[in-house]
Design a protein around this nucleic acid. Sequence first.
DNA 1: TTGTAGGCGTTATCAA
DNA 2: TTGATAACGCCTACAA
Lengths: 353, 353
Amino acid sequence: MVAQKSIAEKLGISRTAVSAILSGGANAEKFRPEMRRRVLKAAEELGYQHNELARAIRTGRNNVLGFVTQSIRNEYAGRVLDGVIQSTAENDFSVRIISINQERNAPKLAKQCIGQCLAGVILYDISDESFLSSLYDLLDAHGIPLVVAGGSVKMEKGLWITSDTVQGGNIVFEHLYQLGHRDFLLSFAYSWTAYSQGLYQGFSNAAAEAGIRLPKCSKCFFHDNADSEKIARIIAKNRVTACFCNTDFHALQLIMTLQKHGVRVPEDVSVMGRGNLRFCRALNPPLSTIDESLDMLGKRAAELIFERIGHRNRIFHRESIPHKLVIRASTAEVGGNIGKIDVESRKGRRNDK
Amino acid sequence: MVAQKSIAEKLGISRTAVSAILSGGANAEKFRPEMRRRVLKAAEELGYQHNELARAIRTGRNNVLGFVTQSIRNEYAGRVLDGVIQSTAENDFSVRIISINQERNAPKLAKQCIGQCLAGVILYDISDESFLSSLYDLLDAHGIPLVVAGGSVKMEKGLWITSDTVQGGNIVFEHLYQLGHRDFLLSFAYSWTAYSQGLYQGFSNAAAEAGIRLPKCSKCFFHDNADSEKIARIIAKNRVTACFCNTDFHALQLIMTLQKHGVRVPEDVSVMGRGNLRFCRALNPPLSTIDESLDMLGKRAAELIFERIGHRNRIFHRESIPHKLVIRASTAEVGGNIGKIDVESRKGRRNDK
DNA sequence: TTGTAGGCGTTATCAA
DNA sequence: TTGATAACGCCTACAA
């Protein structure tokens, strides 16, 4: 390996000079242009490669961020990571992936992060409170900032960045309400998560403001494919005209099931999802959904770390990223087809638009 | 930071002893159990954390692999990365992500890899030959092995691992042929890639062996949603009973378009995709497809690097991973519905099953 | 069985 | 403006 030493020896100058010039900071300015040119030229000729590890060990800072997640093989995590990478690339940092399947071993994870001298750690989609808490403490003891992204735990320490779920539920309601819908079904998977709770809260708050008290059937959960049949039956029985699913996958399943039973989307029932996954636009009808701006989430997570690096005081910070409404063709105005299908179950329907 | 030095000072022993004992190898065995216990206990008490960077700089090897890709936000790359991570975790390595959007700057990338003392580099889905070639040379000069995964360039140096596209095309044909299909349409996006070429070759080879000369209409390419209308028309006109799309996304689009026109899948036309993406099982009908075993691809890529570490001789190695057939409900036996729909365009059809 | 000395490549500090 | 010295944390050879 060609190190600074080789250059110094070749030119017969000190290693100090070589280091200062190659690092290119304010120190390099002090040297004569002639000297600088000679060093740079020699470095080029010898094929010198800067050793980041040596720099990191000396300065005590390694320009690497850790990205911890349960699984990287889903589109959601990929988008967050993409945002993190964008931000780190701009700041000459790089990203290390740490995948902890179901394991929640804080000391072990902290050991990895500290051993690699990470400048900061981002967790995505991990919501085990005691795990997060002890991990935060362990890293904090070494001055390593931790950002929890997309988690749904309430903890009064550390840096947090989440999607604004309440706002998300809000804009879904507004969109559907403006289309004239008054009879809703919320079909949620993972209903126990804070994420789902937030969406529901945002939706029902907005509904309340609009003078609509959600009937019992409007909070309803399903978890697998089989249950989308159940949802379809509930929709038919309860004269529901709009359904909000908390993932695009579930919206997809529901649309397929509805269509199988001859229920048209959006003519008979409007359907919305969440995520704006890549397949949404390929569907028929293309799926209306809300987009979490997950790349922005990742980007901000990295930025929060950059802001914290160097400050050792414990700080509590929480911020959220708003959802964006993505209107496609799976949602439409209500009313055009009432009475044309499934007449019996709809005869008592009020049209309170 | 608590280093070995602190432990040595506290116990009044040499740093050598501490290092040997903590590293836990054969050298540790030489020390008295009593001594070992004392050191381990002190390490625990003081909160000692092993510094990987210092170890790496001393030994010259950093247990980190680089994973380079254009974009990490798609399901394909995520799966490969997942496989890489699995394999690295087993070997106490970790993974660094390097995202190079459209940029193909080999010297810059090599600099990053060398500067971080990476033990090896995996490229996924990058097919620029001159870029790959010079990157290989630059890394090779520093003894860093490079694995090209999923690329489609033919180059006679380095380590290569790809999906067995010919075999993939083969099993698609076999599956459809066994179902009685004789009239095919291949609808490919990115048709210029070696990947697509391989699939086509595998399919047509198998067809030739079965005594079927693919008619002109059997090689047909489309790139966006609008064109799936065109494909649907071609299917109707040419009495096609089975269609193979080279991505699940395109299969999805096609199915949607066909259904919109009242063509039933699989009763009227069988459709296959490639990728086994997550949405496949949520479709109606669930999509039959071929799975590339991308996690296996990533796993093998990492293993190839582990095998090469330490050997500095240039070597050429190429291997491929077979596709797996995933049969769902979008493919079915031909014949049940011939003549029932779209009679005009089908009346001349031969049933040569 | 344990300790000493030296070095990996870099940077910080201080002196010249 | 440049150089000498030391240090970061670890490991390896060799000596005791």
